[in-house]
């Protein structure tokens, strides 16, 4: 078991304002513990990849930070706002991409985006939707029902939906699952174009891809933090070995 994070490293982040600050976060119910005393701090513009075996608490951590679930104990601050005190203020500036699209299949692409823009109070929802459709290259299909879209197109639209409020922090919950290689390529390009000025937190099963995209990595096992480090300090080989040691033989 390794916990390379030391006080010195914590202080190195303290110079710029952290976008996410997690302090002794636990999430449990009865005897079941999903997250156990997790702490880390993420600087602005970072891309955090969360790794761990099934049931390690990755998705729970993502859901707690994105205000979908409430923590049992500990403190979480996002944009220097307290998660328990001001969840709505946080929600204004976050986007969420899940392996599900979070869209209405019986509305058209444009209707879905306009709906979201209205909900977030954008000044010109129609223009907003048009702009986002162009960004994800779906302008030609704007009047088609989402139900008729391929998996890859749906995922692009889901990203457009998540970004329509121009979020400072984007959550990605296994965004690559169920995508064919071509769609993965398009998603990669899309992620590259939207990375500026934004911070990301991603949960992924794909060790290589998650590692490459990230600036920081967090490894969880049984709800506990096994490793939190800047990627530049790690070599992929040693990281992969550490991961396998922590996870056991579950991942080949």
């Amino acid at each position: 078991m390794m916990t390379p994070e030391t006080d010195a490293e914590n202080r190195s982040f303290a110079t710029d304002l952290p976008v996410v600050e997690v302090h002794k976060l636990s999430k449990s119910f009865g005897a079941r513990t999903a997250l156990d005393n997790v702490s880390f701090s993420l600087p602005e513009g970072a891309f955090l990849s969360i790794f761990g075996p099934n049931g390690a608490g990755k998705t729970t951590l993502l859901r707690v930070i994105s205000t979908l679930e409430r923590p049992s104990s500990g403190a979480v601050r996002v944009f220097d706002l307290d998660l328990k005190e001001q969840p709505e203020a946080i929600r204004e500036h976050i986007g969420f991409v899940s392996h599900r699209s979070l869209l209405y299949p019986d509305l058209t692409a444009e209707e879905n985006l306009e709906f979201t823009a209205r909900l977030y109070g954008m000044s010109d929802p129609a223009r907003c939707a048009t702009h986002m459709l162009a960004t994800v290259e779906l302008t030609a299909r704007r009047h088609d029902l989402v139900r008729s879209f391929s998996r890859g197109m749906t995922q692009r639209l889901a990203i457009a939906r998540a970004l329509i409020c121009d979020p400072h922090l984007v959550f990605l919950d296994e965004p690559y699952s169920g995508l064919d290689p071509h769609a993965v390529e398009i998603l990669d390009e899309l992620l590259a174009t939207i990375r500026q000025r934004r911070s990301f937190i991603m949960v992924s099963h794909d060790l290589q891809k998650g590692f490459e995209l990230s600036t920081h990595v967090l490894m969880l096992a049984k709800g506990r933090k096994e490793l939190f480090a800047e990627r530049s300090e790690l070599a992929f080989e040693s990281f992969a070995n550490q991961y396998h040691a922590a996870v056991g033989m579950e991942v080949a």
Binding site: S101, L103, Y120
Partner: peptide
């Protein structure tokens, strides 16, 4: 049923919405 189908309800919960 359609709020559940593709997780649209989750999107509502993530929005700044009472």
């Amino acid at each position: 049923s359609y709020e559940k189908e593709e997780g649209a309800l989750e999107a509502l919960l993530l929005a700044p919405l009472d």
